[in-house]
């Protein structure tokens, strides 16, 4: 037998042995895949945003297919369409998808907030926060370096004049920015229901907060006295709204001396 024949046959023989081993292995060690998984996965938009609380669309589809998750309306980008499609595959009733958006509980822009010192370090919120909790006098102030902006997958949040602002039309409510913010001042709210917002997170006493920022909640309780629905209360020097009771009448917004409250 000539050299090339030996080479070709021996290579083919080794390849055949490897192939047979793999075929046998895949046959005897196979793991059955849930047949619902591909069908459910096809209904989801594939944004992998994580708004459902799972690691991407695959994770959510897998949880649904395995039966560990029963709620079909968790997909925010897919909205009611995806919820209905998933429910149809699973043979259950689809729930309503509540649109949620992020909002930044701070209004201390460059004119209103006072500086504690001049920061000249790395341009990220988390880095600035690690140096004496940032340059702003208010300990709960938006840092304005845009960690949220960099993390947002849908280009919905932008720093304008030192404060992050959310474009509610673009926001999908995935909540990635809420995890990025070192000050924890971004939270999700229901888009349609929660109409009155508190644009401050400062829990310092009134005088201290007032000196740190011109638009800080000073805990004067005017809103609490104004509200006829018992929906707003000052807790730890900061106005907080109970959205189960709030009817968005807007009386507190008109009476707030610092314009902390806003009605959308």
């Amino acid at each position: 037998m000539s050299g090339i024949m030996i080479a070709v046959t021996s290579l083919c023989a080794i390849a055949a042995v490897c192939g047979v081993v793999l075929v046998v292995a895949s046959k005897y060690m196979s793991v059955p895949e849930n047949e619902m998984f591909p069908a459910i996965r096809a209904c989801l938009p594939g944004a992998n945003c994580g708004a459902c609380g799972y690691a991407g669309c695959d994770g959510y589809a897998n949880a649904l297919a395995e039966g560990t998750e029963t709620r079909t309306n968790l997909c925010v980008p897919g909205a009611s369409g995806a919820a209905a499609a998933v429910a149809a595959v699973m043979g259950v009733e689809a729930g309503e998808v509540i649109k949620r958006v992020a909002y930044v509980a701070c209004n201390g822009d460059c004119e209103n907030a006072k500086h504690k010192y001049e920061y000249a370090g790395i341009n990220t919120c988390s880095a600035a926060n690690s140096l004496f909790a940032g340059e702003w006098a208010c300990p709960s102030s938006c840092m304005g370096y845009g960690d949220c902006e960099a993390a947002c997958p849908s280009d919905a949040i932008h720093v304008v004049n030192g404060v992050a602002k959310v474009n509610f039309a673009k926001c999908t409510g995935c909540g990635i920015c809420t995890k990025q913010c070192p000050k924890h001042i971004i939270s999700l709210r229901r888009f349609a229901e929660d109409r009155v917002l508190v644009r401050c997170s400062n829990t310092q006493a009134g005088g201290v907060a007032g000196k740190a920022c011109a638009v800080a909640c000073i805990g004067c309780k005017k809103c609490e006295k104004t509200c006829q629905h018992d929906a707003i209360h000052v807790v730890d020097n900061l106005a907080r709204i109970d959205y189960d009771k709030c009817v968005a009448c807007g009386e507190c917004v008109e009476n707030c001396p610092k314009h902390v409250l806003v009605k959308l």
């Binding site: 021996s10 290579l11 080794i14 490897c18 793999l22 292995a25 060690m29 196979s30 793991v31």
Partner: peptide, 29 residues
Amino acid sequence: NGLEYLSTIIFILVIAALVQFVEIFLKRY
């Protein structure tokens, strides 16, 4: 068998098959 000169191509083959086998094995056990 005097096939030392084929080491590169045979090793590629063996490594690829081995990795596949390890993957199947891990997935199962």
